[in-house]
Amino acid sequence: MIDALHNNKRLQLMLGLLFGFCFGFLLQKGRVCDYEVIMRQLLLRDFTVLKVMLSAIVTGMAGVYAMREAGWIKLHKKAGSLGANIPGPLIFGIGFGLLGYCPGTSVGAVAHGALDALVGGIAGIMIGAGLYAAVYPKLKEHVLNIGDFGDKTLIDVFAVRNPWAVILPVAAIIVLVLLVLEKMGL
């Protein structure tokens, strides 16, 4: 039955819109589409962005792995490599600081009237993505395959049989980090 739902293309487009609505609503309520909130995070003065991300990770991880263990869902792990997951994200990070928004929060910022997010964010990100498509064949041949580690998870890295032996400690560390941030008044 769930497969029929997944294969219903028209319904899935509607669900995408609905889930996006909720995502955008939440991002805006969390103030993480505000230039100042994002920049103050990058300046390590205000940890709102990290608090949102870490609590999403803990909550999401518990449910997603529980559903995976129950056989309800399958994971969507992206394969990675040192050549892909270090230089690209560092360039992303530099852009993140210059722009003051990431792709999702650019969209959210335009929605509260930030025109720099429209011109710089929406247009700039598309230009950057288009430029990437132009150089992709060369990078694929020479760079993206450097230090390939596939779609390994931390569970594979620690080579444990029971995934909860990694999930629970990761959750505990995240909660501890959040408690320390609160304690420090950040």
Binding site: I125, L131, Y132
Partner: peptide, 17 residues
Amino acid sequence: AAVAGGICVGFGARWGN
């Protein structure tokens, strides 16, 4: 600055997938 940043974000996001 925003456009330069946006280009890096778009380029880097695709590079890092």
